[in-house]
Amino acid sequence: MRRTVLITGASAGIGAALARTYAAKGWNLILTARREGPLTRLADELTAAHGVTATVIPEDLSDPAAPERLIAAVAARGLTVDGLVNNAGFSRVTGFLDTDLAAHRAMIQVMLTAPVELSRLVLPGMVQRGFGRVLNVASLAGQMPATGGDTLYGPIKSFLIKASQGLHLETLGTGVHVTVLNPGYTLTEFHDVNGSRDQVSRAYPAWMWMDAARVAQIGYDACEANRASVTPGVMNNVMAGLARVLPDGLALKMVANHARRLERL
């Protein structure tokens, strides 16, 4: 029997890479994002390549009603969510004061509220059936000091890390695995969307960047192994470790200096 995984933000980037990884492992897919066209093309690709069933359900998770509507749409199709990948997200780098309230509200809804609600909607069934997988895509930013400009992104990801760790502990022994994936700089469309591609590409050497397919495989393997958290890449783990041991003042100064360097590029 094939399991079925629901992946949010599946139209591009790490979300699409995770869809390819799960399909290669024999999972059927439920793909959701705002853009139907890319989802349909990805579904066709993966069905042809792996013989899996790929269901497309477009949804805008910035709508507070979207999580319940999405799960209702899944149930209406007679599908069961055996795995959930909370991947949808974006960032704002124009500054807290220069970004309007509606955009902040949408960011919190998509990246914080929606993962919590979707997890709460599907986890009871997973526990009852004795099988489930939840993979939350956070970020190295959630393990680092907060940065000015992209003010909410790191704190939201930090919340997701802590919430995932709590769920991991709460579901131990139930057959449900909960893992949080913390990618660093990854080659995807993410930085093109938020307009920072040129700056970050010049700020970081090529060896610091990871391929989305590799990041997805690491996340998948960690979730199957029921690891609470995984951060891909040696350098990313070094940076996260330094952030934990450095005094707050020094860590904040380091991050602030880096942010100023990006602004000068």
Rank of each mutant, 00 (worst) to 15 (best):
A106Q: 10
F159L: 01
G132W: 02
A146P: 03
F159S: 08
Y204A: 14
D198G: 15
G195F: 14
L140N: 02
L172K: 15
V134D: 00
G195Q: 15
T151K: 03
P205V: 08
G149V: 11
M107C: 04
T151L: 14
A163T: 13
Y153F: 08
Y204S: 07
L160N: 13
F190H: 07
T186A: 07
H104Y: 10
V116S: 11
I108T: 15
S139A: 03
R105H: 15
T174R: 04
H177G: 01
Q109F: 12
G149R: 07
D211K: 14
L123S: 12
Q143I: 05
E117M: 13
P124Q: 01
Y204E: 11
L169C: 07
N136H: 03
R120T: 09
W209G: 07
T113E: 15
V122N: 04
P115G: 10
S164E: 02
T171V: 13
R129V: 09
T113Q: 13
A146K: 11
M210R: 10
G142M: 03
R129E: 15
V116N: 11
G148A: 12
V178Y: 00
Y153M: 05
D192P: 13
G166L: 13
Q165Y: 00
L121S: 10
N136Y: 08
N194V: 06
T174M: 14
G132C: 02
N194D: 15
K157Q: 00
G195S: 12
S164H: 01
G154C: 02
A138K: 03
V180D: 07
Y153D: 01
D198Y: 14
H104T: 13
P145N: 04
Q165L: 10
Y153G: 03
E170G: 07
A141Y: 02
K157R: 04
G149S: 05
P205Y: 05
G125W: 09
